[in-house]
Structure formats: C-alpha cells, structure tokens
C-alpha cells in the first residue's frame, strides 16, 4: 500500500454531477506528483479531499495506512503543508509569525523554535531581514516563497500545493519551480501539486496525473505521457508543449549558442533533423 492511497474515490454534488469519478491512485513516500488537466477537471477537488477541506462522497483516501475519515481533522491538517495560489498569508502578522502559524496554534507552545523561521526563509531563498516585515511589503513571488516556507514549518511529510505559482510573473515562476524542485530533492517530502500549466507539470513531477472530467486519463512519468500517450486526448493535451518541456535544456542551450555564434543556422539544423 502506498503512502497516500486513493481508493475508488468519488465526489458528487447533488447526487448525479460527479466532479471526481472513481479515482484510484497510489502515491509512494517522497514522490512529487503533479496533477494536471483542463479547468473544471476536478484537480483542486481531488487535492482538497486529502486534507478534508472537501468531504469524500464515496470511496476512501488512506494516508500512511489510515483512512482520512479516522484521522482527527485538525491534527491531520496540521501535519500536512498547504499552499494555495493566493497564498493566504495573514496580513496582520509579520513574516516570522506567519511562518510560525502552525506551531503557534498547536498545543505544544514549546514547539516554536526561534531558529526555525530563519532556517526556512533561507531555504526558500530570502534573507532573514524579511522576518520582521509584513506580507504587504513583499512582491508576489516573495510572498509565495513565504507560503512555501510556512508549509514546511511543522516539518510535514506531505505538502499539498494548489496552483501555487499561478499568480506570479514568469521569471519568478521559473525560479520558484527550480527551488521547489531543489527543496523536494533535499527534504524528500511527498508533494501533491495541482497545476494547469503543462510544462510546469512535466518539469516538476516525478509522476504526472492527467485528469479529464474527474477521471484519470493517464498516469506516468514525463516520458510516458509525452511519448506513449494512451489516447488521442493525452496526445493532444500535451502535444508540442509537452515535447518542448521534455527536451534537454543543456542541449537546447548549446544549439541556441551555436546559432548565436553563427556556427550554424536554424535552417541548417532543421535540414539535419529531417
């Protein structure tokens, strides 16, 4: 049994509209699972059922072998990191207090480790000068870093991320993607990451789940989804964008540099490829 196990999970509203339709999925400890799909496919719903923000209609979700129904809701949520697109930093608390929010609401008051916030803010690439500032004094990208740091405070095994980088500009997003990947490598957390960005899903996920109308269309690695699509839908969904995302960046850089240095022309490269 996997660390997180979805077993024939269904979510329906008012009886017949199934937002999530019979999903079975097994996630191992330390995996980085990206959940991708068109809007309305149920990806956010699927994520929110893990920390019980949305109740399950049928089926079960097991975390570490225990049904989420049997987990005490509050302590389950405190043991899972949660990052959303609009970050949800508390505007009336400074960054340090925001990062320490989960320990501060947990019973063990001694749990607030003074160095923890400093450690985390450095992990997400900001200096500890920021600890005394307020969220409104930060840029979107910086706030999102704090959101990530906050999710890590209680040292959770699982982190749920719901389009966390959707609202930041492209440069900041690329950096954040790179950093979350590094953090994952370093800390080996199990991450469930919802996104509608195809390249982001392929770049980050060790396992990628494509959802369509509440059903799993295909699960697999980047290579499997791009080069062995199970259906026309998968092929069309990833398409050229998926292919681009799976190109080796170092090789592409070399090609680009050779063109810049006029060692080759773009036409020449196309000719070679044909």
């Amino acid at each position: 049994m996997g660390f997180i196990e979805f077993n024939h999970v269904v979510k329906s509203y008012s009886g017949d509209v199934k937002v999530i339709d019979d999903i079975t999925l097994s996630i191992e400890r330390g995996e980085f699972v990206t959940i991708v799909g068109p809007s309305g496919c149920g990806k956010t719903t699927l994520l929110k059922m893990v920390n019980k923000l949305i109740p399950i209609s049928q089926g079960n979700i097991y975390i570490d072998g225990k049904d989420v129904i049997d987990w005490e809701t509050i302590s389950l949520r405190r043991s899972i990191g949660y990052v959303i697109q609009h970050i949800g930093l508390l505007p009336h608390l400074n960054i340090e207090d925001n990062i320490n929010y989960v320990p501060s609401i947990s019973k063990r008051k001694s749990g607030i480790d003074k160095n923890r916030a400093k450690e985390l803010i450095e992990l997400v690439g900001l200096s500890d000068d920021y600890l005394s500032r307020y969220p409104r004094q930060l840029s979107g990208g910086q706030m999102q870093r704090i959101g990530v740091a906050r999710a890590l405070t209680a040292d959770p095994e699982i982190i749920l991320m719901d389009e966390p980088f959707g609202a930041v500009d492209e440069i900041a997003r690329t950096q954040l993607q790179h950093e979350i990947k590094e953090i994952h490598k370093k800390l080996k957390k199990t991450i469930l990451f919802v996104t509608h960005d195809i390249q982001e899903a392929l770049k980050l996920g060790t396992k990628i789940v494509l959802l369509k109308n509440g059903k799993i269309e295909q699960i697999g690695t980047q290579e499997e989804l791009v080069f062995k699509p199970k259906s026309e839908y998968v092929k069309a969904f990833f398409g050229l964008k998926g292919f681009q995302a799976s190109l080796n960046e170092n090789v592409m850089h070399n090609v680009y540099n050779r063109i810049l240095l006029k060692q080759e022309t773009l036409d020449g490269i196309y000719r070679k490829l044909e």
């Binding site: 923000l53 302590s75 949520r77 949660y82 970050i87 949800g88 508390l90 009336h92 989960v102």
Partner: peptide, 26 residues
Amino acid sequence: DNQIIESAIGMGSTNIQLLLRVQLPL
C-alpha cells in the same frame, strides 16, 4: 478574504482559533 480563511482552515485552525486569530483581528 476567503482565501485567507481557507488557508487558515487548511493549516489546521480550530473554529475558535480561526475566529480569534484570523477573523476578528482582520
């Protein structure tokens, strides 16, 4: 803001904590 409420709930705030530490101050 609903997003703030949702993330506070998602992080494991109890009803009272949500009220006293998030809703009332804001």
